[in-house]
């Protein structure tokens, strides 16, 4: 029984990281109908930033919550700037082009960041170990069930960030503008909503969550390399589609489902099926609900 709950906890903490990343995919898609493939790379840059910034607070790194939060904040700022730049340089000039052009550009941006980061004077191709920002401790140990402070941190931080996001989208003026732009950019701009600024803001929000995800991943699994964003991004993208791309709550649900599915597959089926199972679930759900679990199907107007 303890084993079952241990898998549950592992799965939720992995899933909430997927959820954080999936939200970024979903938000951008909701507004631009663009799959921002470079999002996984922003996650990686979040981790890379932490790798460089943490030692600046004093060597050797002294783990503390304050240090973690400062590193997190700086990573968020850096990733927001990167997100803004990606939007401004790569996507805005293509706003009126066919969707396939944007998609290819997105893949191009993703590859560019991956290989640019691998250059020796940026980060290099060698995986590095991430500094220990928070000392891991077992806080709960009941009947063979072990819960570490890091898992609680991941859960707490992910869900509070999702709460803040929920507040911004549904309770603020900017959120209202975001929702309006996602309904119809043309009408929104006729009504005086600064569409470009709203889109830029969406990228900032998504990048902040990506930075948080990157910092959490690197804290949980202390290895940073230039290609770490690729698989994480892919899985989070699947999670976003699974939950219904364009829907924030769908992304959260999809992320958690992915995390749990992976964890229970490894635990009770076979660890070799780990990645296969995620995609099998995706195919099955899309067969039954083509727009994802919580997605609403839009009727294309002619």
């Amino acid at each position: 029984m303890a084993e079952f709950f241990q898998h549950l906890i592992n799965g939720i903490s992995l899933g909430s990281i997927y959820a954080l990343i999936a939200i970024g995919y979903s938000m951008v898609y909701g507004i631009l109908q663009l799959i921002n493939f470079a999002h996984g790379e922003v996650v990686m840059l979040g981790a890379v930033t932490g790798f460089f910034v943490a030692p600046l607070f004093g060597r050797p790194v002294h783990p503390s919550l304050g240090l973690f939060l400062s590193v997190l904040l700086i990573s968020m700022v850096v990733c927001s700037i990167v997100g803004l730049l990606i939007e401004r340089i790569a996507y805005r000039p293509l706003r009126k082009s066919p969707r396939i052009n944007c998609l290819i550009t997105a893949i191009g941006v993703s590859l560019f960041i991956q290989y640019f980061t691998q250059l020796d004077f940026i980060f290099g191709a060698i995986p590095q170990s991430y500094p220990e920002l928070i000392e891991r401790q077992i806080v709960f140990s009941i009947g063979g069930l072990e819960i570490s402070n890091l898992q609680i941190l991941v859960l707490g931080l992910s869900f509070s960030l999702m709460g803040i996001l929920e507040f911004i989208v549904f309770r603020t003026k900017m959120g209202k503008a975001m929702r309006a732009v996602s309904e119809s950019p043309e009408i929104a701009s006729l009504l005086g909503i600064p569409v470009n600024r709203v889109i830029a803001f969406t990228f900032v929000l998504g990048s902040c969550l990506a930075a948080a995800a990157g910092t959490l991943v690197a804290t949980m699994y202390p290895k940073v390399d230039a290609l770490m964003g690729a698989l994480l991004g892919l899985k989070a993208f699947v999670a976003a589609v699974l939950g219904g791309i364009g829907s924030i709550s769908g992304a959260v649900l999809g992320g958690l489902l992915m995390g749990l599915a992976e964890e229970y597959t490894v635990g009770y089926l076979s660890s070799s099926f780990r990645d296969a199972i995620a995609f099998t679930i995706l195919i099955l759900i899309l067969l039954v609900r083509p727009s994802g679990l919580l997605g609403t199907s839009r009727i294309e107007k002619v």
């Binding site: 084993e3 241990q6 898998h7 592992n10 799965g11 992995l14 991943v217 699994y221 290895k223 770490m228 698989l231 992976e262 964890e263 229970y264 597959t265 490894v266 635990g267 009770y268 076979s270 660890s271 070799s272 780990r274 990645d275």
Partner: peptide, 15 residues
């Protein structure tokens, strides 16, 4: 089992 490049092994280890 795992595949080189994986970062999460908690499932295998819990089993």
């Amino acid at each position: 089992n795992y595949v080189g490049g994986d970062i999460d092994f908690k499932g295998q280890l819990t089993a």
